[in-house]
Structure formats: structure tokens, C-alpha cells
Design a protein around this nucleic acid. Structure first.
Lengths: 176, 176
DNA sequence: AGGAGCATGTAACTAGTTACATGATTGT
DNA sequence: ACAATCATGTAACTAGTTACATGCTCCT
């Protein structure tokens, strides 16, 4: 399961509670790996019994206690060996492509509206990635060692959104 | 569940057995929606009890009998209403992006080898899409009504593979 | 008084994967 | 003799989603 590994990556950077992880997944990593808090709590529980992570309770004032998880030595070695295994190409699953393929059975205006919606979503996501890039990496030609990975991931997001946008534009050209 | 709808699209074009569907999913639709034969049989069973499809046995000589499924009127109306509902943007899940993000914890050569592998896979897939396009749609400016959808889907595949390739090249440039 | 944010979870369900199981025919 | 193709499935498991559940504090 890759969520486990995504959590290990995140905890390797900094220890965190389930709640913290859920927020991190909403922000940075979450663009490439979504996870709900329910799923995170469940997986953290299993990871703890597998000794990949360990937790200790931290009392806070004015806020509920939190259970802070840290990666263990075992977790780190699991992470290291996962990092160097070849990654299987992920199967892309596109409901939209299935609908588009059935265009001749469908309603042209409905498809058109759907494509326009998608186009706007791609445009918005692209803009958000680009402003992240400008904000966090103003000098992409001079990146620290630990910035290169995140930067390249962000570039991947930008490239993917541009491609999504280009596809929508091509569809719109054909349909309207 | 979108597999149900992908099956309905496929059966709306032509009736088929579970086995036939599995092969179709391996070929055209499968580039955008993978499904194993086990899963297809299971879903077909449910769809039959839901009256979206109906089957009859066809005896063949020299080959095992097959159960040919056809879309029902109810299936067709389900399909029609699904086709016009707005499509939620699919969350992209990239194990590769998670690994790349952890580049500073990883082995540079292993990542490099992985990226090269992915690059070749994208290149191979792109070539396969492009030869499909050249073969099935030699005149993309004069497409029949029922060809436009599949053509646009193929274009989406081409655009996505080009983007994947471009990303790999950018990573390779940074890493080597 | 009400909503947002902090914090943790359980339960039930749906979707998808992997392993197992069978058996005939056709081609090398 | 052996592998590939045709043909259909079951069983066990893993991953992920949706709905439900609780309770405190801070801000408006």
C-alpha cells in the first residue's frame, strides 16, 4: 500500500499527529495522493502494530491531547527499501474518457458543459501550482538538495494541468 | 461505480460475453479504465440482477459455450442519464510522485533508473497511440459522427503521454 | 448562539486485486 | 507434450469511501 509509504515520507520529514498528516495530505502531498483522516487513522494504527511508527501522547492547553507519531528505525529502513524499488506505471482511470468515448450516444451540450467545467478546474489548479512555485521556489536554478524533489513534483503537476487544459481546448474546438 | 457504465457503453455498441468485454478492456477502453476478467464477471452478475443487462447462452462448436450479454432498455436509460451528469475530477494518485518528493532521502541512481524506465514506457505508449491514430483515423479532419468521441479520447491519451514524457525529460535534465 | 478549527476514532460498505479452480481446442 | 486461446467463475483479501459519533475552545 502506497499510503503507508506516503505517511512514512511525511513522518521522516517531521513527526506529526493523524490530524496534522491529514492536513499535510490536503496541502502538498495530497495533490498526488489523497487520503481522508479516517483512512489515515486506520493506517496509522496498523503501522504502529507493525512497528513502522511509534506514538506518544502530547497534552496541550486549550486544545485536545494529540497522539504524535514518529517514524521508527524499522520504518526508516522500510522506507529506504521502498524508495529504490521500481515504480509500476499507475493505471489511469478516467470516467471522463469513458463518457467522451460515448459521445455519439450522449448529449453534445451536456458534454460541452462538462468539458468547460473541467477546463476551469484545470486552469484553477494550474494557477495554484504556479503560484506555489513562484512563492516557494523563486530561484529554480538554485535549489537546495531537499528542495529538488518537491520542485520536480510541482513541475509534474504543472505539466499535467497544462496537458489537461490543452486536451479540453482541443475538445472544445471540435465540439463548438 | 464507473466500471458498470464503461460496460454499458461497450455493450451499447455491441453485445458481448464477459470474455469479449475483458478483451475490449485490454484494448481500447482499457487504456482509460482497466478491468480484470474476474471483476467484469462479478459486475456483470450484479448488473443482470439489476436488469441493466440480460444474457443468453450461445453454443459454439469447437469452443466452450458463451454467455452473451446485451444492454436492456433500463440499461440504456441508466447510461443516458449517467452520460449527462457532470464528471467529478478524478484524484490523481502517483506513487512515483511520492517517491520523487522524497528524493533527498533516496538513492539518486535508483531514481534515475526509475525515471528512465518510465520514460521508455511513456514513449512506447505514445508510439502505440500514434500508430492507432494513423491507422484508424487517417483523416482526422473528416470524422464520422461515431468516430469523434474515440478520436478525442485517443488525442487525450497522446497528450497525456507527451506530458509524461516531457516530465521525465525535465527530471532527467535536473538529475544527470 | 453558532460555526470553525482542533482532535480522535468506529462501522458499514464499495471497489478492486490476487490467488485459486476447471476444462476444452488449436497450434507448435 | 506443452503452451496459448477460449470461456467462466469463486474466495479471500486489501484499499478506500461514506456515514456516524464525540467533545472542547475560540471567535463573531
Amino acid at each position: 500500500m502506497a499510503l503507508e509509504h506516503a505517511i512514512l515520507v511525511s513522518l521522516a520529514e517531521r513527526s506529526a499527529s493523524g490530524y496534522d498528516l491529514a492536513r499535510r495530505f490536503d496541502a502538498s502531498i495530497g495533490h498526488f495522493w489523497k487520503a481522508s483522516h479516517q483512512q489515515i487513522y486506520k493506517v496509522l494504527g496498523r503501522m504502529e502494530s507493525d512497528k513502522l511508527v511509534e506514538s506518544h501522547l502530547v497534552a496541550q492547553d486549550g486544545r485536545p491531547d494529540k497522539k504524535v507519531y514518529a517514524i521508527t528505525t524499522e520504518g526508516r529502513s522500510e522506507l529506504t527499501s521502498w524508495l529504490v524499488t521500481p515504480t509500476p506505471v499507475e493505471a489511469l482511470r478516467s470516467e471522463f474518457a469513458v463518457k467522451l468515448r460515448a459521445l455519439h450516444l450522449s448529449d453534445r451540450d451536456a458534454v460541452l458543459a462538462d468539458v468547460r467545467r473541467r477546463r476551469e478546474q484545470h486552469a484553477a489548479q494550474l494557477e495554484s501550482y504556479e503560484s506555489s512555485a513562484a512563492h516557494y521556489y523563486p530561484h529554480p536554478d538554485r535549489l537546495d538538495d531537499d528542495e529538488l524533489g518537491p520542485w520536480l513534483v510541482l513541475r509534474g503537476g504543472i505539466i499535467a494541468e497544462q496537458a489537461g487544459l490543452a486536451w479540453c481546448d482541443e475538445i472544445l474546438k471540435e465540439l463548438s
